[in-house]
Simulated scan of single mutants.
Amino acid sequence: MSFLSSMNISASAMTAQRLRLDIASENIANIDTTRTEAGGPYQRKMVVLESRNENNFRKIMMNAAGISRQQSTGGVKVSQIVQDTSPFKSVYNPEHPDADENGYVQMPNVDLLKETVDSMSAYRSYEANITAFNAIKMMASKALEIGK
């Protein structure tokens, strides 16, 4: 595995984690949105990640041993952004403009605690990939210094 492919893997992970953080921020921003363009309350969004690596373990080991020269495309990609299908919360507030005949308002299915944990997880993963990226840069720099 070359330095550039290692950097590409870290970069793909940073891009995916940034999107996770963006989606968590969007969910938190819409925690009280009871009316959307589609009608009804805001529905929580979630990011689905999947591996970009199409190679299996055997192919990777053969590449590492020098038996095969197929390039391994590692990393992560966002396969889709899905909407959470959990039920909406009903809150009693008869003065709200979106209240039904019984005085209940359908609130978004966004849980602040879940979104905070998702944000922290995305941030820590992003931070870990920055550390790996910087370590790769440092190794490449040290390798170039050997030739001096």
Score class of each variant (00 low, 15 high):
46 M>W: 01
38 A>E: 12
89 K>H: 10
63 N>I: 09
60 I>G: 07
103 G>V: 02
81 I>A: 00
32 D>L: 09
115 E>A: 06
75 G>S: 03
128 A>T: 09
106 Q>N: 15
65 A>D: 10
121 S>Q: 14
59 K>V: 09
97 P>T: 02
117 V>L: 06
67 I>G: 04
88 F>Q: 07
49 L>Q: 13
125 S>V: 09
77 K>W: 02
45 K>C: 01
74 G>M: 08
120 M>D: 06
90 S>M: 15
99 A>E: 00
26 E>G: 12
56 N>L: 01
56 N>S: 06
113 L>R: 12
85 T>H: 12
56 N>R: 09
74 G>V: 00
80 Q>T: 13
67 I>E: 15
95 E>M: 12
73 T>H: 15
87 P>M: 07
124 R>M: 10
116 T>N: 09
37 E>W: 02
71 Q>T: 14
114 K>I: 10
115 E>C: 04
127 E>G: 02
53 N>A: 01
99 A>Q: 00
80 Q>M: 11
96 H>Q: 08
127 E>R: 06
68 S>F: 06
58 R>F: 12
72 S>D: 15
71 Q>S: 09
41 P>W: 03
42 Y>D: 03
54 E>A: 11
115 E>R: 04
120 M>T: 13
117 V>K: 04
40 G>E: 07
102 N>Q: 14
26 E>N: 15
111 D>V: 10
49 L>D: 10
49 L>A: 03
101 E>M: 10
43 Q>K: 14
28 I>L: 15
28 I>P: 04
84 D>F: 07
98 D>C: 03
124 R>I: 03
121 S>V: 11
97 P>M: 06
